[in-house]
């Protein structure tokens, strides 16, 4: 894992926009789409060009996928413009798994619940059809991203559809289901499942559970996060998530400190 800040010096904003708008060199477009999202360039001209890139047919990967569409969807998730929700929602029907995944993640970030019916539709058939695609590392649908989006968008109708996925064979899907069910029901048994994963053998799953607990802001997890066998940088990010959720966010006034907030910060101090 790297924590070196990426500097923006490699490209100017104007160059990146021009690179995204041209079509002669797909690799330049691909990079520009990522760059504009990374540096949060949210001008209307960028939104328009990225939205157009969601329907690109020039950039193709050997497996028949659409790399530029994937990057454009990811960037749009970071740029916060709700205008693109219908276009991203259409991407949920793409025949490229990774476009569907990027679109679900972006829609979750944009926080607009109008895509809920299309997200729910991707869970049709339930856990029985959530099997690995032969010859691919992934399942038939990007279940983890879909379920996470439903949780973040507070789609409470999704609870009964998501519930069986806490027993899925893929641990990433299991984690996503626990995380979403906690967000949708407030039932702490689901958050406690993530704490159990945090103490497991797989570093990748420990990291994922750590970020999930931070994302849902589950305050009782602070001690387990501090003690987890992962990098301090990640633990600090997760614990910031707990604090973001615990404290009121109105600026210009010092936040009122609860005894629990002080305990969490003391744990954070020990990780610096």
């Amino acid at each position: 894992m790297t924590d070196i800040e990426i500097t923006s010096e490699s490209l100017t904003k104007e160059e990146a926009i021009a690179n995204l708008q041209q079509t002669a060199d797909p690799s330049l477009r691909y990079y520009a789409a990522w760059w504009l999202g990374r540096f949060r360039v949210s001008e209307p001209i960028v939104i328009q060009a990225l939205e157009a890139a969601l329907e690109d047919t020039d950039s193709r990967s050997p497996d028949g996928g659409y790399p530029l569409r994937r990057n454009a969807a990811r960037a749009l998730g970071k740029l916060g413009n709700p205008r693109v929700v219908p276009a991203l929602t259409r991407c949920l029907g793409s025949d490229d798994y990774y476009v569907r995944e990027a679109a679900a993640q972006a829609l979750a970030e944009l926080g607009d619940v109008q895509c809920a019916p299309q997200l729910l539709a991707l869970l049709a058939g339930g856990i029985e059809v959530a099997t690995q695609v032969p010859g691919k590392p992934h399942l038939t649908q990007p279940y983890a991203a879909i379920i996470e989006a439903l949780g973040m968008l507070q789609v409470t109708d999704a609870v009964s559809l998501i519930a069986p996925f806490v027993e899925h064979d893929f641990a990433t899907v299991k984690n996503a289901a626990a995380r979403a069910l906690y967000q949708l029901t407030g039932n702490t048994q689901y958050a406690d499942r993530l704490i159990t994963t945090l103490q497991g053998h797989s570093l990748q799953l420990r990291r994922s559970a750590l970020m999930d607990l931070g994302a849902i802001g589950y305050l009782p997890a602070a001690e387990a996060i501090a003690a987890a066998l992962t990098e301090n940088s990640l633990k600090l990010i997760a614990m910031k998530g707990l604090m973001d959720n615990h404290l009121p966010s109105d600026q210009a006034t010092p936040p009122e400190l609860t005894p629990r907030a002080i305990e969490v910060m003391q744990l954070m101090d020990g990780l610096l």
């Binding site: 910031k240 604090m243 973001d244 404290l247 600026q251 010092p254 400190l257 002080i262 910060m265 954070m268």
Partner: peptide
């Protein structure tokens, strides 16, 4: 620290500044 506790963009940083002034 008092300015930080009011003006930092991140609530966790504002909170830590507030704690430092206790």
């Amino acid at each position: 620290l008092a300015s930080c506790s009011r003006d930092d963009a991140e609530v966790v940083v504002r909170a830590r500044a507030q704690m430092a002034l206790m």
